[in-house]
Amino acid sequence: MQTRRQFLFTLIAGLFVSGTEASLKSFQPSDYVDISNKLSSLVTNKNSALFIGKAYQSLPPQKTTDIPQEIFSLLQRINLTQKEFIKLEKPLVLQKIKNAIEQDFHTGNVELVNGWLLSKTEVKLCHVLSLIWAT
């Protein structure tokens, strides 16, 4: 059972990745592994991320389960390319994510997930992770 506290840990621990002009087709298997590993390393509470990600997945309308597509979408939100994301140091990635989350709240890019009003960036992060960990 997920507690609210655990749930929030994920959000605070904050998140991840990147890309602007990268295309899905440019995804190489090695990039995918690197990105997935780095994304996972950014989150301190796996259960919370899974909880949010799965909850989001179950909400209408139907969500894609295409991991590369979701990673690409996430990287776009934080304005990083795949390579930038891989190269960038963890604190800088976290700062990028934090900025994107705050911007979401300023612009109304929010999502209600199981009662929690969350930024679309943090929801997307959890969704990506839940998909990655499910494979």
Binding site: R4, L8, L11, K98, I101, E102, D104, F105, H106, G108, V110, L112, G115, W116, L117, L118, S119
Partner: peptide, 20 residues
């Protein structure tokens, strides 16, 4: 509640749970 939740998000105060 939405406005309060958004303000909490904007200024990194916390996250708000809104009951069904």
């Amino acid at each position: 509640l939405e406005i309060f939740a958004m303000e909490c998000g904007k200024y990194n105060l916390g996250r708000v749970y809104i009951p069904d």
